[in-house]
């Protein structure tokens, strides 16, 4: 594992696990709220997004190691997590108002 420098690998692992989790969580929340807003029954929306969200988690987990730049990984995962989670709250507010 000589080409893999330890701090870099640790950062990518952190991004993959914690960043990937936050990103997928946001994806599930945002997607559930969006589908519910479109009139899909809440639990149907939730279960569909849970299934998709697990696959998204797997995808971003792998991508965290495959991507060229660690900073891009962090930017996408943290930015995406903030965007999706924020959008979920805003969507919910719009639906409930």
């Amino acid at each position: 594992m000589s080409p893999a420098r330890t701090p870099c690998v640790a950062l990518r692992s952190l991004a993959a696990i914690i960043g990937g989790w936050a990103f997928s969580w946001g994806f599930v929340a945002c997607g559930t709220a969006a589908l519910a807003g479109l009139g899909v029954e809440f639990h149907d929306a939730e279960i569909s997004l849970l299934m998709l969200g697990l696959l998204v988690f797997l995808g971003v987990f792998l991508w965290s190691f495959a991507a060229r730049s660690v900073s891009r990984v962090f930017a996408v995962l943290v930015g995406g997590a903030l965007f999706f989670n924020g959008a979920a709250v805003l969507l919910q507010r719009a639906i409930l108002s």
Partner: peptide
């Protein structure tokens, strides 16, 4: 999510 930020919707 349904027990966290989407609790009101849930």
């Amino acid at each position: 999510v349904s027990q966290f930020q989407l609790k009101p919707l849930h």
